[in-house]
Amino acid sequence: MSKIEQTVEIPHLGGSSVGYTFGRPYDPALPTLVLINSYTTSAELYRPQFANPELGSAVILLALEPYGHGRTRASYQHFTYWDSAVANLQALDSLGIREAFVLGTSQGGWIAVRMALLAPNVVKGLIPLGTSMDFESPRSLDLGCWDGIAFCTPSVDDLADPVGEDWVVPDEFVDDVFNTAMGGLSAEERAFWLAAYRANYAGDAGRHRLRLSTVNLRDRDGLHGRLDEVRCPVLWLHGTKDQVYSVANAQEEIRMFTRSPEARLEVIEGGQHFLSASKPEDVDSAAIEFVKRWA
């Protein structure tokens, strides 16, 4: 399957370019499955999904990169997860896609839910992976989630000052992300992601996008008071080896989608935080079944 990697222009944040990747040319006869990547990664997180012919024949795959990530750029210099949700909806509209299922990893999960809250007529179903609907709260720490404030604050501080145009993201930063999210990488995968991060986060503009992405992760608002307004079905997939957000947290939060026609948690044995990358077969088969049921 040959991917189509482009950008689409939208009006949000003073005018933006949103990076998008289609698995193949758009076909309105098939349901669209939007893929939203995790913190500091890009559409490349979903290489296993784009490489799966069974998934690619069941749905139209469309990866959308949030602000601060991949090829997405805005005229305004600050953004939040709500902005990424609006940008994704405007990108769908610009691409002529009236409705879609949305799958998101970690931060992609809470961007997906924001999309469903903003445009319930567009989002037909949600597949959050290894995520949380809370802010980085004492409650989530008590339930065995990571200390996101401790993880993010050193980077927020280290990235505060302007840098030269020869700056690239340090290798240790990339290693820290993937050690936490995947339990480490093979040499080949590490080389791939080091190159991707150096391309995405270079120069002073790259530093600033990286810092804002980290500020957003650390300082975001929680969604608990809004989850009862989600009206579409939810299939939450969570790995038992997730070092960031716990299964116990997912078990509590799935029950907060009280007005969804169905809200179900599926726990995947041995799955890491970046679940679509660590257990692609489980995620892909669950996604196919969910979309076929609700399309």
Rank of each mutant, 00 (worst) to 15 (best):
S2I: 08
K3I: 04
P11K: 07
S16N: 07
S17C: 05
G19C: 09
T21K: 03
F22P: 03
R24P: 01
P25Q: 00
D27T: 02
T41R: 10
T41K: 06
E44C: 08
L55N: 13
G56H: 13
S57Y: 10
L62A: 03
L62W: 02
L64Y: 09
Y67P: 15
H69K: 15
T72H: 13
A74H: 13
S75G: 01
Q77C: 02
S84P: 14
V86Q: 07
A87S: 11
N88I: 07
L89Q: 05
L89H: 06
Q90H: 06
A91P: 00
D93I: 00
I97T: 05
E99G: 12
G104F: 13
T105Q: 14
S106M: 11
Q107C: 12
G109E: 07
R114M: 03
P120T: 15
P128W: 03
G130I: 01
S132F: 05
S132P: 01
D134Q: 01
S140T: 07
L143C: 13
G144M: 15
T153S: 14
D157C: 04
D157S: 09
E165I: 01
E165N: 03
W167P: 02
E172K: 15
D176F: 08
F178E: 01
G183A: 13
L185H: 06
A187Q: 11
E188P: 02
E188Q: 13
A191W: 03
F192Q: 09
A195T: 07
N200K: 02
Y201G: 04
Y201T: 06
A202I: 02
G203C: 01
G206S: 03
L210I: 05
S213L: 12
T214S: 11
L217G: 08
D219M: 02
G222Q: 13
L227F: 07
V230Q: 10
R231E: 09
C232S: 07
D242P: 02
Y245T: 00
S246C: 15
A248K: 14
A250M: 01
E253L: 00
R255G: 02
F257Q: 00
S260H: 05
A263G: 06
A263M: 02
A263T: 04
R264I: 12
I268Y: 09
H273R: 01
A277L: 03
E281P: 11
E281D: 07
V283R: 00
A287H: 07
I288P: 09
F290Y: 12
K292M: 01
W294A: 11
